[in-house]
Protein backbone atom coordinates (compact mmCIF):
# COMPACT_ATOMS: atom_id res chain seq x y z
CA UNK A 1 0.00 0.00 0.00
CA UNK A 2 1.19 3.47 -0.78
CA UNK A 3 -0.73 5.90 1.38
CA UNK A 4 -0.15 8.71 -1.06
CA UNK A 5 -1.60 6.84 -3.98
CA UNK A 6 -4.70 6.21 -1.88
CA UNK A 7 -4.76 9.80 -0.72
CA UNK A 8 -4.90 11.00 -4.30
CA UNK A 9 -7.77 8.69 -5.12
CA UNK A 10 -9.82 9.79 -2.16
CA UNK A 11 -9.38 13.48 -2.74
CA UNK A 12 -10.22 12.96 -6.39
CA UNK A 13 -8.79 16.29 -7.49
CA UNK A 14 -5.68 16.86 -9.52
CA UNK A 15 -3.13 19.45 -8.50
CA UNK A 16 -4.51 22.09 -10.83
CA UNK A 17 -8.07 21.36 -9.71
CA UNK A 18 -7.05 21.71 -6.07
CA UNK A 19 -5.51 25.04 -6.91
CA UNK A 20 -8.69 26.01 -8.72
CA UNK A 21 -10.79 24.95 -5.77
CA UNK A 22 -8.75 27.15 -3.45
CA UNK A 23 -9.31 30.12 -5.77
CA UNK A 24 -12.99 29.28 -6.16
CA UNK A 25 -13.43 29.17 -2.40
CA UNK A 26 -11.64 32.48 -2.03
CA UNK A 27 -13.16 34.48 -4.85
CA UNK A 28 -16.38 32.82 -5.95
CA UNK A 29 -18.29 30.96 -3.22
CA UNK A 30 -19.56 34.14 -1.62
CA UNK A 31 -22.03 34.38 -4.52
CA UNK A 32 -21.89 31.03 -6.30
CA UNK A 33 -21.92 28.82 -3.22
CA UNK A 34 -19.67 25.94 -2.16
CA UNK A 35 -20.90 23.61 -4.87
CA UNK A 36 -21.70 26.26 -7.46
CA UNK A 37 -25.44 25.93 -7.00
CA UNK A 38 -25.76 29.70 -6.85
CA UNK A 39 -26.54 29.64 -3.13
CA UNK A 40 -23.68 31.70 -1.69
CA UNK A 41 -24.40 33.99 1.24
CA UNK A 42 -24.45 37.01 -1.07
CA UNK A 43 -26.65 35.35 -3.67
CA UNK A 44 -29.95 36.50 -2.22
CA UNK A 45 -28.98 40.15 -2.73
CA UNK A 46 -28.33 39.67 -6.43
CA UNK A 47 -30.83 40.23 -9.22
CA UNK A 48 -30.43 38.36 -11.47
CA UNK A 49 -29.29 35.60 -9.12
CA UNK A 50 -26.19 33.57 -9.93
CA UNK A 51 -26.93 30.48 -12.01
CA UNK A 52 -26.84 26.89 -10.79
CA UNK A 53 -23.57 25.65 -12.26
CA UNK A 54 -24.76 22.06 -12.46
CA UNK A 55 -27.28 23.12 -15.10
CA UNK A 56 -25.55 26.09 -16.68
CA UNK A 57 -21.96 24.91 -17.04
CA UNK A 58 -22.49 21.92 -19.34
CA UNK A 59 -24.38 24.15 -21.79
CA UNK A 60 -21.23 26.04 -22.71
CA UNK A 61 -17.61 25.32 -23.50
CA UNK A 62 -14.72 26.02 -21.09
CA UNK A 63 -13.69 28.87 -23.39
CA UNK A 64 -17.00 30.57 -22.59
CA UNK A 65 -16.48 30.09 -18.82
CA UNK A 66 -13.03 31.54 -19.22
CA UNK A 67 -14.41 34.56 -21.06
CA UNK A 68 -16.82 35.31 -18.20
CA UNK A 69 -14.09 34.91 -15.58
CA UNK A 70 -11.73 37.18 -17.46
CA UNK A 71 -14.06 39.87 -18.74
CA UNK A 72 -17.08 39.56 -16.46
CA UNK A 73 -20.60 38.38 -17.17
CA UNK A 74 -21.24 41.65 -18.97
CA UNK A 75 -18.87 40.48 -21.72
CA UNK A 76 -21.31 37.78 -22.81
CA UNK A 77 -24.29 40.10 -22.67
CA UNK A 78 -25.44 39.28 -19.16
CA UNK A 79 -25.75 41.45 -16.05
CA UNK A 80 -22.62 43.23 -14.79
CA UNK A 81 -22.82 41.53 -11.38
CA UNK A 82 -20.03 39.00 -11.94
CA UNK A 83 -16.94 41.18 -12.14
CA UNK A 84 -14.03 40.79 -14.55
CA UNK A 85 -11.01 39.03 -13.03
CA UNK A 86 -8.73 39.14 -16.06
CA UNK A 87 -6.69 42.07 -14.77
CA UNK A 88 -6.56 40.74 -11.22
CA UNK A 89 -5.73 37.06 -11.52
CA UNK A 90 -2.75 35.74 -13.47
CA UNK A 91 -3.61 33.47 -16.38
CA UNK A 92 -2.47 30.37 -14.48
CA UNK A 93 -5.05 31.09 -11.80
CA UNK A 94 -7.78 31.48 -14.38
CA UNK A 95 -6.73 28.22 -16.02
CA UNK A 96 -6.96 26.55 -12.61
CA UNK A 97 -10.40 28.04 -11.98
CA UNK A 98 -11.63 26.78 -15.35
CA UNK A 99 -10.25 23.35 -14.45
CA UNK A 100 -12.19 23.38 -11.19
CA UNK A 101 -15.36 24.49 -12.99
CA UNK A 102 -14.82 21.35 -15.03
CA UNK A 103 -15.11 19.40 -11.75
CA UNK A 104 -18.28 21.25 -10.75
CA UNK A 105 -19.85 20.65 -14.14
CA UNK A 106 -19.46 16.89 -13.84
CA UNK A 107 -22.47 15.11 -12.35
CA UNK A 108 -21.75 14.01 -8.79
CA UNK A 109 -20.14 10.63 -8.40
CA UNK A 110 -18.65 10.57 -11.85
CA UNK A 111 -15.04 9.54 -11.81
CA UNK A 112 -12.74 12.44 -12.54
CA UNK A 113 -10.94 12.30 -15.85
CA UNK A 114 -7.19 12.11 -15.80
CA UNK A 115 -5.97 15.70 -15.42
CA UNK A 116 -4.24 17.39 -18.34
CA UNK A 117 -1.51 18.74 -16.12
CA UNK A 118 0.55 15.94 -14.78
CA UNK A 119 4.20 15.38 -14.31
CA UNK A 120 6.02 13.85 -17.23
CA UNK A 121 6.44 10.53 -15.46
CA UNK A 122 6.37 7.54 -17.69
CA UNK A 123 6.93 6.82 -21.36
Amino acid sequence: MDVFGRQAQEEGLSRIETDGKRLFVHYCVTCHGETGEGDGQNASTLAPAPPDFRASLPVHQPAYWKQIIEAGSVAVGRSPLCPPWGRTLPSDDITALVAYLGVLSRPAGQKPVEPAAKAPASP
Binding site: F4, G5, Q7, A8, S14, R15, K118, A119, A121
Partner: peptide, 9 residues
Amino acid sequence: PMRSPQLIE
Protein backbone atom coordinates in the same frame (compact mmCIF):
# COMPACT_ATOMS: atom_id res chain seq x y z
CA PRO B 1 12.59 8.57 -6.57
CA MET B 2 10.61 10.87 -8.79
CA ARG B 3 7.95 12.77 -6.89
CA SER B 4 4.40 11.77 -7.59
CA PRO B 5 2.04 14.68 -8.34
CA GLN B 6 0.80 14.46 -4.74
CA LEU B 7 4.28 15.04 -3.35
CA ILE B 8 5.94 17.22 -5.95
CA GLU B 9 5.30 20.40 -4.00
